[in-house]
């Protein structure tokens, strides 16, 4: 197999690691994938990733690092790069094709995505949390669906409008709690707590919690702690949003 130049390879590895971290992969998987790519292209690559920085060293002669930001979830990206690196190792994909596709992904920073209405309906299904099944009558689930869709839409649009990290979750959970109290005041429901519990489920930091656990088990304590802190901050911003609504009304 032809070798690609060290300079090019280090750029390629840096871009791959950046895309994987932004997609929400665990750090040990990122290191593993990048080192495997280097091996299948015939070079020795050493990669060290924390959640906020990526360090790459190729063949003892080329060192690079870049910054990355916390947050952002795109499981499609992880799957695509995983499939590509697998077929690169199987030699069904040439290095040129691989480089071209990584560059394309890096330029667009996005993959195929569900449209917003589909995502909102998905959020509605998450809001009908099965843990509430026998705590409340069946027609409450319809209110859960509606409130969950509204709460998720608010958070989606706010996170696209502003880059300020935790404010969108605070405001959307505030809106959810206000809607729950409003439903009770209109006399449609008697217990609004269950509806609020269901409707905040789409905002739960599931990716951060799961990755933090898996990284902690793999002895990646540093990035695991960063993710735990992020999950804690997200959870408490949701909590304070609800608390302020409960205090005001």
């Amino acid at each position: 197999m032809e070798k690609i130049k060290t300079q090019k390879l280090s750029n390629l590895c840096l871009k791959t690691a950046y895309l994987l971290i932004n997609g929400g992969a665990e750090t040990y998987r990122v290191e593993d994938t990048v080192e495997r790519i280097g091996r299948s292209l015939g070079s020795r690559v050493v990669c060290y990733v924390t959640v906020t920085a990526i360090f790459i060293e190729v063949n003892n002669q080329n060192y690079k690092f870049t910054k990355s930001v916390l947050g952002g979830t795109n499981l499609q990206m992880i799957d695509e790069i995983n499939t590509m690196s697998r077929s690169l190792a199987d030699r069904t994909l040439t290095p040129e094709d691989f480089t071209r596709r990584i560059n394309q992904l890096y330029r667009n920073k996005r993959t195929t995505d569900f449209r917003f209405p589909v995502k909102a309906i998905g959020a509605g299904f998450v809001s009908m949390a099965p843990m509430l099944l026998f705590q409340m009558p069946g027609y409450y689930f319809i209110y859960c669906f509606i409130v969950g869709v509204i709460g998720y839409s608010v958070s989606y649009y706010l996170s696209h409008l502003s880059m300020l990290p935790y404010a969108d979750l605070f405001i959307s959970s505030f809106v959810i709690a206000v809607l729950g109290i409003l439903l009770k005041n209109m006399g449609l429901v008697t217990e609004y707590h269950d509806i609020i519990i269901g409707a905040i489920m789409p905002l739960v930091p599931g990716v951060a919690i799961t990755n933090a656990i898996r990284e902690l088990v793999m002895r990646q304590a540093l990035s695991s702690m960063v993710r735990f802190l992020d999950a804690l901050l997200v959870a408490s911003s949701i909590g304070f949003g609800i608390a302020s609504a409960l205090i005001i009304f």
């Binding site: 795109n74 499609q76 995505d113 995502k119 959020a123 998450v126 789409p202 599931g206």
Partner: peptide
């Protein structure tokens, strides 16, 4: 009720996978 639980559990898992843009 086990069947209802199964359906609701799968629906909410699929819903979260749509939010996080799973393949």
């Amino acid at each position: 009720d086990i069947l209802i639980n199964f359906i609701l559990g799968s629906l909410s898992a699929i819903g979260f996978s749509i939010i996080t843009n799973a393949p």
